[in-house]
Design a protein around this nucleic acid. Structure first.
Lengths: 147, 147
DNA sequence: ACGTTGTTTCGGGAGTTGACGAAATAACGA
DNA sequence: TCGTTATTTCGTCAACTCCCGAAACAACGT
């Protein structure tokens, strides 16, 4: 793959709202796939495909951790600074800020508890899920967000 | 348009080989549309649409100069450094380097002369023009890397 | 006025992307 | 073992992208 084709792949990966939100969510630390589905509220298969594209572009790495796959920003992202110009813009974005709040809450919920939340039928509805998570989060308030 | 949507628009614009080559070509100075069609060897209408997308993304600006439209990298590109991480990678790219040589040659040809090349319409929009330029530049005949 | 040239817009066709659900796979726990 | 849960792969379909040529538009020279 030529350097130009590589650049195209990377920027195509960045150039999608869902993938950009996933990258932003990972900025505060690693997350597993099921957490990401909660954040962007899409079907697990869709999120998996987005993450696969980010991995192929070298933007995230994945590590199998028991039942879950832990995703994190790749070293090259931090080293090459390819995303450095995007973070400041996201500071002013309402959706990105809401995501950041949700991510922070999610990190306080142990994965076992998060997965036990009954999603019912409507994955698309945010308030119910968010309140369920918030309720679960109120029970546990010990961990602190990394980095 | 939200900051996130704006970022997506910018990176989608960058995430295409032709548009990336156009941006790279503009790095050495302003160019007009007809010069760009020579560089990327696509129909004028196609190049126009690519440039329109780059303009809507705020990456290039255009200024009408007589019959020609002069495109150049926008101030914000240079200010925000959104493209700073891409230039080093293009240094290693064969196609980008060949483009750079051709651009250098093109800049020596006055626009009136470039446009005066007789272009009867066989096959692609202006093969005769392209070959004439290639002959002058002596580079475009040997960049078929097989594999 | 007219023809020429550079550029843009429009319509369409081939190919790609993004979303889903269903099914398959992997790992835990009872 | 079996059932549950997280994740991936696959088939499908709607929507979009990219490229083209034709036509329209804009500006120059004669």
């Amino acid at each position: 793959m030529t350097p130009l084709a590589r650049l195209v792949q990377v920027h195509k990966a960045i150039g999608h709202p869902v993938r950009l939100r996933l990258l932003a969510a990972l900025r505060s630390g690693p997350l597993c796939g099921c957490q990401m589905t909660v954040i962007v509220k899409l079907a697990p298969s869709t999120v998996s495909e987005h993450l696969s594209e980010l991995r192929k572009a070298g933007l995230v790495t994945e590590k199998k951790e028991g039942r879950w796959v832990e995703y994190r920003l790749s070293d090259s992202v931090l080293r090459d600074g390819i995303l450095d110009p995007v973070w400041p813009a996201l500071e002013d974005d309402l959706e990105a800020k809401a995501d950041a709040v949700l991510v922070k809450e999610l990190r306080r919920v142990p994965l076992e508890e998060l997965c036990s939340v009954d999603l019912d039928l409507e994955r698309l509805q945010r308030p119910k899920l968010a309140s369920a998570i918030a309720k679960a989060a109120r029970i546990r308030t010990s961990d602190e967000a990394p980095r």
